[in-house]
Design a protein around this nucleic acid. Structure first.
Length: 378
DNA sequence: AACGCGGGGGG
DNA sequence: CCCCCAGCGTT
């Protein structure tokens, strides 16, 4: 074998046709007996519903998504309705799901489908991928699941199944590893029954070839799984190389006016909790009164502090100390400096709130005596 | 407390 | 290109 060929083959191994056939047959047979066929977005199967579900499923597991999906479809039953909807209302439906850029992208994409595709979701990979929020794998999922056409996918479940079955070393986030996995997915995905196969691979990864303790006894690929043969399924896929997360601290101000309403401000569209409504934040090292005078232009009186809590992101920990503050003179300029509202706890509206803010507001919407005073510092 | 998830965007 | 970013549920 020539060196060039050897290198190429090492980088991107080719699966013999019969082996690919055997693989997909086993997966499809398993799907007939164990695959999920009555999820809410599979019931009346239309492209819009598949699209919404795939965006929701991007970083979120099936069980969490179901409730959000049903409420979302109820409020926005089709693409024109979603396009016309108030962005704040869309965010409200996403509140709690996380990764809020998905909701903004979805709303934008709906508009693009209206203007560029006459309101009809396209079925080719390039057009799908051109829509915000749809990458290669989601485009493949929509094309196969919604339109029944050939397209490989590579979500976290498929990555895990393939990395184990073909003992692919390295972290799947690494570009070279990802290329190998895509190549495998392309070759193994059958041109007939692609939807069933893709659904089966995701179900297999979610229910059988799970991260923690895989149920190899009930896996349709026991006989051919190379990681199992080598006796170390848990080594694949290799974990992400880890780094130490920095810790940041902030104070969230619960500013109440004489009527007892609470001041909320909308976060900038990008960054943490982008577009969601949150509490004003005063850096811990700043004197609170000075900060409120300078930034909010109002005089305040500090009343009480709530138990500090840690909110963790993938790249840092945020230690939040909520502070109850009374506004003495609700100044005129206060509401003009940015998108702000006085929020009535007694009459919550359709507004996307940052998750820790929801929890804090829920906590103060009860008598002080119920507050947990013990609690360790984070 | 650590981990993993798909896509976008910036260096 | 590669690396960083985002928020939740699960382990």
């Amino acid at each position: 074998m020539a060196d060039r060929e050897r290198r190429a083959q090492t980088a991107l191994p080719t699966i013999p046709l019969e082996e690919a056939e055997r693989f997909s047959q086993r997966v499809l047979a398993w799907f007939d007996r164990h695959g999920r066929k009555d999820l809410p977005w599979q019931q009346p199967r239309d492209p819009y519903r598949i699209w919404i579900s795939e965006i929701m499923l991007q970083q979120t597991q099936v069980n969490t998504v179901i409730g959000y999906f049903e409420r979302f479809i109820q409020s926005f039953p089709d693409i024109p309705t979603l396009t016309a909807a108030d962005p704040d209302k869309v965010m409200h439906h996403w509140s709690g799901l996380g990764y809020y850029a998905r909701a903004r992208n979805l709303h934008r994409a709906a508009g693009e489908v209206m203007t560029r595709h006459q309101g009809v979701l396209p079925d080719d990979l390039d057009s799908l991928q051109a829509l915000p929020g749809i990458g290669r794998s989601t485009a493949g999922a929509i094309r196969s699941l919604a339109f029944g056409q050939y397209a490989p996918i590579l979500d976290g479940n498929v990555k895990r199944v393939l990395a184990r079955h073909f003992v692919i070393p390295g972290w799947p986030g690494n570009n070279g590893v990802q290329k190998q996995l895509w190549r495998l997915s392309e070759q193994l995905t059958p041109h007939r029954q692609t939807a069933q196969y893709n659904q089966a691979m995701m179900d297999l990864g979610a229910t059988c070839c799970v991260r923690g303790k895989p149920l190899c006894d009930s896996c349709p690929l026991v006989q051919s799984c190379q990681a199992l043969a080598e006796g170390d399924v848990s080594r694949y896929p290799a974990p992400k190389p880890k780094k130490v997360l920095p810790v940041r601290a902030t104070r969230m101000l619960i500013l109440t006016d004489p009527a007892g309403d609470i001041l909320l401000e909308q976060r900038p569209p990008s960054g943490i909790w982008g577009g969601l409504w949150s509490l004003p934040e005063c850096p811990p090292e700043q004197p609170l009164k000075d900060w409120c005078r300078q930034v909010l232009g109002c005089d305040v009186e500090e009343r009480d502090q709530l138990r500090p809590r840690r909110h963790s992101f993938s790249h840092f920990h945020l230690d939040i100390t909520p502070v109850l503050v009374a506004v003495k003179n609700p100044a005129k300029g206060l509401m003009d400096a940015g998108p702000r509202v006085w929020y009535k706890l007694s009459q919550p509206d359709d507004r996307g709130l940052a998750a820790p803010v929801s929890r804090i507001l829920r906590e103060i919407d009860r008598p002080i005596s119920e507050h947990q005073s013990g609690g360790e510092a984070p």
